[in-house]
Amino acid sequence: MEKVRYGIIGIGNMGRAHALSLVNEIKGAELTAVCDISAERLEWAAERLPAGVLHYLSPAEMFEAHTIDAVLIATPHYDHPTLAIEAFNYGYHVLIEKPAGVYTKAVQEMNDAAAKSTVKFGIMYNQRTNPLYKKLRDLIQSGELGEIRRTNWIITNWYRSQNYYDSGGWRATWGGEGGGVLLNQDPHQLDLWQWTTGMMPKRVRAFCHFGKYRKIEVEDDVTAYVEYENGATGLFVTTTGEAPGTNRFEITGDNGKIVVEDNQLTFWRLRTPEPQFNAEYKGGFGSPECWKCEIPVEEGHGDQHKGILRNFTNAILNDEPLLAPGEEGIHGLTLSNAMYLSAWTDNWVDLPIDADLFHEKLMVQVNNSTFKKEAIVSAKALDVSGTH
């Protein structure tokens, strides 16, 4: 295979961006087909994409044509697992937009289908290309920080007005998006939280406020507390209702703390690890000597979406290791599902979560949603996974 022939399902905001990238900037890739039930979006494709790109009105039609090698799924959240499984059954490589899905039960079925196949499976976790988070992961995984004691991420710079939510009936609904700030704005942070530290919590206690700042049915303010197997704790705070917002990720370990804020990486490094200092120090009041180290990081934000597309293409052509394997999408989703379940049950939630119980609770919300099930069909043309 000299080139990977891509087909895109869903040509909304993100689908269009990916289409143009595949046409103009991804070596070894060729956009062969696009699929959308919206005539208006297919008209855009006819005007903006090369004449040879095929147009399909349904995924089944595109799959049956066998004109592609890989499919990029940029549809509403609920459809990601279903379409991915169908593509696996046809033998196509699959790259999905984030999040992996809405509930872990469906995503696990998708992962199981991927495991039975021999194709590549990736997810559009483009923030994994960001030099800032790559360096953070390297510092932690290499042992520079020592054993982690605490993680804190305050990510509140997601301000959204009521007008934003009113721009689409599917926005901020259980039936349309399947969640609010956790599922729409925060999937990258929930992924990076566990990807950089290499740790998933053992249990979660969360407080979700639904429609606190806006007239919406899903959560727009969340505070979650987590506990890890090694005794470390963590806090995740997020909202779309505050201005100005904050984006600060702080990780404390035996050797000091690392702070990520304002696109800078600062390592407050202890000259003597805290456990050693505590065991040896005899002077009463005192603390370890600490050095403020500004960690050099490559400028820019990395290749982002194009980087994931290049990596996925090279994985197919040259067996390059995937930066964002699709199977890992379940980790961040597990965190958001656990937070919802904790809020709905007003209790701690152990990981792995009870996937059946979460699905049951979610369906109660969906059945009471202002965006009804019958409306989901007409919404499939909407690329809500890329709107944020």
Rank of each mutant, 00 (worst) to 15 (best):
V204D: 11
G176W: 02
E219Y: 03
V222H: 10
G175E: 05
Q194V: 09
I216Q: 06
L182I: 03
L192Y: 05
G180S: 08
Q194L: 00
R203W: 08
G176H: 08
W195A: 12
V218W: 05
H188D: 15
R203M: 11
M199T: 06
N230W: 06
T197M: 05
Q189L: 08
K215D: 15
T196V: 15
N184I: 11
W193L: 15
V222W: 02
H188P: 02
W195K: 05
Y213S: 10
K202I: 14
E217N: 11
N230G: 12
Y225R: 13
C208M: 07
H209A: 11
A172L: 00
G178T: 11
R171E: 01
F210Y: 15
Y228T: 10
D186L: 08
K202Y: 00
V222L: 07
L190M: 12
Q194W: 04
V226M: 15
V226L: 09
A224H: 06
V226F: 11
W170N: 13
W195N: 10
Q185H: 11
D166L: 02
E219H: 09
I216C: 05
P187V: 01
P187A: 00
E217H: 06
T173I: 01
D221N: 15
D191R: 08
V226N: 08
G176V: 04
I216A: 09
G175R: 04
A206E: 10
Y165M: 01
G175H: 03
Q194P: 12
E229F: 01
T173Y: 00
H188Y: 07
D186Y: 01
V204F: 02
P201T: 05
R214F: 01
P187F: 00
F207R: 14
N184M: 09
Y228G: 10
Q185T: 13
L192E: 07
T196S: 12
R203P: 12
Y165P: 00
R205W: 06
Q194N: 13
G198D: 04
T196M: 14
K212R: 12
D221C: 10
N184H: 07
T223E: 12
K212P: 06
Y165H: 13
Y213D: 14
L192C: 03
G175C: 03
D191W: 02
V218N: 03
C208S: 13
A206L: 02
W193H: 14
V204Y: 02
